[in-house]
Design a protein around this nucleic acid. Structure first.
Lengths: 183, 183
DNA sequence: GTCTATAATTTGATAGAC
DNA sequence: GTCTATCAAATTATAGAC
């Protein structure tokens, strides 16, 4: 794998655990086996690194989501695909969503990062909206899609905080059940 | 007001915006009009400061919640009181919940802070559980209470990230409606 | 309780050689 | 692309005077 990607891997690991300010060029250098000045070659400023990281994260997220929902035909199946992608992000990496963490730190982040995180959430909400039954009103779709994103993000945070991954399962299943009329 | 409280005020303001690592002794000293060594007199280590801050935050939160739910008789009224306390924390201070932010950074926080944040969430979940109708099964009460906390935390984060406080209102009203059979 | 002074470490960042 | 060398600033923290 090329160095830029390896730096991003190290940065993602650290940032999804401690946040933006918990990542330093020196840590990334040690993680990657190069010097901090070489990390600066790939990402001159920390803000650049953050933006590249969020963009890669978003790209991957929607790639996986696209794939997971490929065979989904009903709204219910699509929502379940959405849930499964969040679930994988949580248990595969044993960390919360990068944008969930950065979203919490939003007021302390550099401008370009704020925009990138907002784009992720915007696309998230739009995706769920599009997946919901067309029979619902526009405003009902908004209500459900924003609630769905908020609940999934909150569930990740709460489950990780309490050290109980099952909490994520309980909460998000409940939400999906409610949205598909099983609650 | 005494200096310890003024330091905590400054710390809360900063930490609820940028997170644990966005707060420095020197910033707090400047905010409070004393020197950083004097801040250390009140809180020898940063971890102490963080714990004291979370404990004060939790105390105030439940004091306000107690007061807001004092006249509430029905489960619905109690849940609405819960929602209103989160809403006030968001709009009065124009920041998300201290523990919501620290919960997101959990994996990067010192041990005593982790415990303090967990206690806050634990008490949150228990409070909602206790407020729900006794007619519900124990497991249903758990499902609803954890979902309620997750959704409120997620809604705060999402609303702040998108710069749209109304998003919090829409999402949490939807959730409360669902829980009280209005959805 | 607050100050001055200071230490040890970390941080984001740059210049210039190879 | 990576290195050595270096920097200025910031960070947590302590010693000791007042």
């Amino acid at each position: 794998m090329n160095t830029t990607e390896r730096v991003l891997d190290a940065a993602e690991y650290r940032m999804r655990r401690g946040g933006y300010n918990a990542v330093s060029f020196r840590d990334l250098a040690n993680d990657t086996g190069i010097k901090s000045s070489s990390v600066h070659y790939h990402f001159p400023h920390k803000e650049d690194l953050g933006v590249a990281l969020v963009e890669r994260y978003a790209q991957r997220f929607f790639d996986v989501l696209e794939n997971a929902s490929r065979k989904a035909e009903t709204p219910k199946q699509k929502i379940q695909a959405f849930r499964s992608v969040y679930r994988m992000a949580l248990s595969d990496d044993d960390a919360i969503c990068l944008c969930g963490l950065l979203g919490a730190e939003m007021a302390g982040l550099p401008g370009k990062l704020v925009t990138a995180v907002q784009s992720f959430f915007d696309a998230n909400v739009k995706w769920v909206e599009q997946a919901l039954p067309e029979t619902l009103s526009k405003s009902d779709r908004r209500k459900w899609s924003t609630s769905m994103v908020a609940t999934h993000q909150g569930a990740m945070m709460l489950a990780t905080s309490m050290g109980d991954t099952k909490l994520f399962d309980t909460i998000t299943k409940h939400m999906v059940d409610l949205s598909t009329g099983q609650g």
